[in-house]
């Protein structure tokens, strides 16, 4: 199946984010979540829903996402995508993202399971304004339980648009990386997956980065050149890899401060007599 989908989100004059354009075709449906009464979050959440069996051999799906100045979008999946056999034909998913001044996108699809005879290719190409923020996750599972992985190649390219100032004429590439599954020699190598089945990554171009990065037994967080960080985790199953990825993301100072600020806003207002503590900070 060939599908072209478009999603554009903008911030209206009242400060609320609205879906300005939404076009989707089977097998990819885009379903906006209705607003929740009293929700503090002014952003928009859209679910990616597979409305037919996909990705399947020959599927060619493209999604263009634009987030306007100051707008916020969470684009999330509802179920794992299961890449199915390609009889000599690959399936492809191309996602192009444009983030304007002060725009935020969290692209959090559910895991992709690459079944043994699948041949699936993906491309995520994100272009960011220097003030925009991006969080993009990818969780790849090499085969269903007890099954070898099919072929998969996924490229992520993140580019920061040049500031409209003299002297900086070209865009600045932050990350360009292709992940591959389905090659037994690579998967077994302790330089690649070390025999693990699941690879999870998350790009965080989201405020402060940690110059030194952080590392655990099966995850790492490392700062990219210029701006942004990459969290990487490996695991024997999707649950373990996603847990390790969450640890890596929690080590990112920019993301953590956003989460803490959100928790602060969600807390009930302090009573008027709430005292400042010794350091002068208010609770």
């Amino acid at each position: 199946m060939r599908a072209r989908a478009v999603l554009a989100v903008e911030r209206d004059t009242g400060g609320r984010c609205v879906v300005r354009e939404l076009r989707s075709e089977s097998p990819l449906s885009l379903v906006p979540r209705r607003g929740v009464a009293g929700a503090l979050d002014t952003g928009v959440t859209v679910h990616l829903v597979g409305s037919a069996t996909t990705p399947l051999a020959g599927d060619d799906v493209e999604l263009d996402v634009r987030v306007g100045p100051g707008a916020a979008l969470v684009l999330t999946g509802v179920a794992a995508a299961v890449a199915l056999p390609g009889a000599g034909r690959a399936s492809t998913l191309t996602v192009r993202v444009e983030l304007d001044d002060g725009a935020c996108l969290q692209y959090l699809p559910e895991p992709t399971v690459v079944t043994s005879r699948a041949d699936h290719r993906t491309l995520l190409h994100a272009t960011l304004h220097p003030t925009a923020r991006l969080r993009a996750r990818e969780v790849l599972v090499g085969g269903r339980s007890g099954e070898p992985s099919g072929r998969y190649a996924g490229t992520t390219r993140v580019v920061e648009r040049a500031r409209p100032a003299p002297g900086t004429t070209s865009d600045r590439v932050l990350l360009h990386q292709t992940q591959e599954l389905g090659d037994a020699g690579l998967a077994a190598s302790s330089a690649y997956l070390g025999g693990r089945r699941v690879l999870a990554t998350e790009v965080l171009v989201w405020g402060d980065d940690s110059a030194d990065g952080a590392v655990g037994d099966d995850w790492s967080l490392t700062s990219l050149r210029g701006r942004g960080s990459l969290a990487t985790a490996v695991g024997h199953d999707a649950v373990g890899a996603q847990r390790a990825l969450a640890e890596a993301v929690a080590a990112h100072p920019g993301w953590t401060s956003t989460v803490l600020a959100g928790a602060e806003r969600a807390r009930p207002a302090p009573p008027p007599h709430a005292a400042a503590d010794e350091s002068g900070r208010r609770w």
């Binding site: 990386q177 330089a191 030194d212 952080a214 490392t222």
Partner: peptide, 21 residues
């Protein structure tokens, strides 16, 4: 230059960060 190969190496990245520490 933008079209040159770009294979990632998740464990090498992890080992490099861990080595520094």
């Amino acid at each position: 230059p933008a079209d040159l190969p770009a294979p990632g190496a998740p464990m090498l990245d992890l080992l490099a960060q861990s080595h520094v520490r």
